[in-house]
Nucleic acid binder design. Structure first.
Lengths: 107, 107
DNA sequence: GTCGCCAATCGTCGATAGACGATAAATGTG
DNA sequence: CACATTTATCGTCTATCGACGATTGGCGAC
């Protein structure tokens, strides 16, 4: 159980910044790929946004694949499952697991 | 929506450390109050543990009330609801909310 | 009243995060 | 081939985090 603590903490750390939350919301609201639009949406420097994207990608929360001259970012919600499960454990001490994942991640 | 980003980020930051996750698990597993036992359970210095407790309390994730010579800490799951809701939004883009809390927290 | 225990706070240190500008790499276009 | 565009990376600076020892404060015991 202790081994997963680091993993969960890393996931939580990825969410522990307003700019990254904004980016995730933006990715959620955007159907397809999205590139430099993120920069002006969050109002930070391009290098800063790129750094946040790198952190999110390192945490596995998003995936980025190069498509031509730009990079396509997409959400990877499966990475947040351990964190969601942990929070669920805390918020629902009586009901063990309220919802099981219907798809197994095979990264 | 942007105003809640800071709040969610703070909650996530409270979870973004293995030691704090351990403390939360310990509080979850311990029915009643718990005091200095946390110190030896996490294996850190007393001042360090106290600092983590302060951070968790500042984030609203736990509550601490003085009961005699020791302090009684308890979980406050309601503080994590915004974060859980945000994660739920990401993990289930198609199904809005997968599970509603069957009990309302009245801290 | 004095002592001992437990928790909180203070001060300090090293490590890390976050922001930025500047620069480099990759790719499609003329 | 040269150019423009887009993204990633580098270097630097400041701010914050995390850990610790030492000290202080509160409260019960004696």
């Amino acid at each position: 159980m202790q081994d997963s603590d680091t993993e969960i903490a890393d996931r939580a750390k990825a969410l522990a910044h307003p700019a990254r939350l904004r980016i995730l919301r933006l990715l959620l609201a955007t159907p397809g790929c999205i590139g430099g639009d993120i920069v002006e949406a969050v109002g930070l420097a391009q290098s800063t946004v790129s750094e946040h994207l790198r952190i999110l990608k390192a945490a596995g929360v998003i995936t980025g694949e190069i498509s031509g001259p730009r990079t396509c970012y997409a959400l990877n919600p499966a990475a947040l499952e351990p964190l969601a499960e942990f929070i669920g454990t805390l918020t629902a001490p009586s009901a063990a697991v309220c919802c099981m994942p219907d798809e197994k991640e095979l990264s």
